[in-house]
């Protein structure tokens, strides 16, 4: 994927929609793209050392105690809750197809969000929507 294609891919994701080109380039250089085969867990329930992921391509399923609770795809992100709380993930996130995702090392999330307040705002919006949905279901 060329630099242009990576920037275009990032710019098309809601999370990064407010960033200008230099900032998108910096994000692209800060979050390496990784590939996961189908069947592999990307985030592991109960494991230490997890990261923050943004899906570029492919689908994942979110499982809590082996029960599927959600499906995520391009542009969705995960891993932030456990990093913000400083606890191991409470769900498995499993690739159901080959997945390409951007990864941010867990210890870098705080500095990353402070460096890019528009990303923090978008993340807050998304997390709020999830909370709202959960509240409506309960």
């Amino acid at each position: 994927m060329s630099q242009d294609q990576i920037i275009d891919a990032l710019a098309g994701l809601t999370l990064f929609a407010d960033l200008d080109r230099p900032a998108l380039l910096a994000v692209a250089h800060t979050m390496p793209e990784e590939s996961f085969p189908a069947g592999q867990r990307i985030l592991r329930q109960g494991f230490s050392g997890g990261g923050f992921f943004v899906i570029l391509e492919g689908e994942v399923t979110v499982r809590v105690d082996e029960a599927e609770v959600a499906t995520l795809g391009k542009g969705d992100f995960f891993g932030e809750i456990s990093l913000l709380l400083g606890e191991p993930p409470i769900a498995d996130v499993v690739a159901t197809s080959p997945v390409h995702a951007l990864q941010l090392a867990g210890p870098d999330l705080r500095a990353f969000l402070l460096a890019y307040p528009p990303v923090m705002y978008r993340m807050l919006q998304a997390v709020s929507r999830r909370l709202d949905r959960a509240n409506r279901r309960s």
């Binding site: 590939s35 592991r44 050392g49 990864q103 941010l104 090392a105 867990g106």
Partner: peptide, 11 residues
């Protein structure tokens, strides 16, 4: 290196 493994703490 394309197989990233667990990459714990981003390492």
């Amino acid at each position: 290196q394309g197989v990233s493994g667990l990459r714990k703490y981003g390492i």
